[in-house]
């Protein structure tokens, strides 16, 4: 059973997203909404990771060796300025999308595994991840015209 690998993937993605939210939020302190919301969303990601942990442990006992190239790196540092902010939020969006589709797939697998406990975690967390993506998209859509057309 390979569920453990996908759980591990999502667990790691959530932790990396939390880290990126904190780093980007801190770097863009002069955008207070980005700073404060990123901080809150990072805490949400930590919570998601915490809820996943017992399942990661449980399923890893029955897992074969982890395949290669399961995980890909989506964030490699912050940028500055209006364009930089847009690109950083863009990174966060892609990382949240990685989590979002993982939740969907793990939800599918949880049904196959008849694991109601895991399903509960998925249904609770996946809507928060979806809202994170909506917020990122909202914020980027507002910023894009000024950053891409107006600013010199």
């Amino acid at each position: 059973m390979h569920l453990a690998h996908y759980l591990g993937l999502l667990h790691r993605s959530q932790i990396e997203l939390a880290g990126a939210l904190r780093e980007i939020g801190e770097h863009h302190r002069d955008e207070p909404d980005v700073h404060h919301v990123c901080e809150r969303l990072a805490a949400q990601c930590d919570d998601h990771a915490g809820r996943l942990e017992p399942f990661v442990r449980r399923y890893s006992e029955e897992a074969p060796q982890e395949p290669e190239r399961l995980h890909s790196t989506l964030f490699s540092g912050t940028r500055s300025g209006g364009l930089g902010l847009l690109r950083d939020l863009h990174d966060l969006y892609l990382m949240a999308a990685e989590c979002d589709i993982s939740w969907t797939l793990i939800g599918q697998a949880a049904q196959g595994a008849r694991d109601t406990g895991l399903l509960e975690v998925v249904s609770r967390c996946e809507s928060e991840t979806a809202t994170q993506m909506t917020w990122l998209s909202t914020r980027m859509k507002q910023a894009a015209p000024q950053a891409l057309v107006v600013a010199s």
Partner: peptide, 9 residues
């Protein structure tokens, strides 16, 4: 909106 983040529906 989402009241916690301001994400627009």
């Amino acid at each position: 909106h989402d009241l916690l983040t301001g994400a627009e529906y």
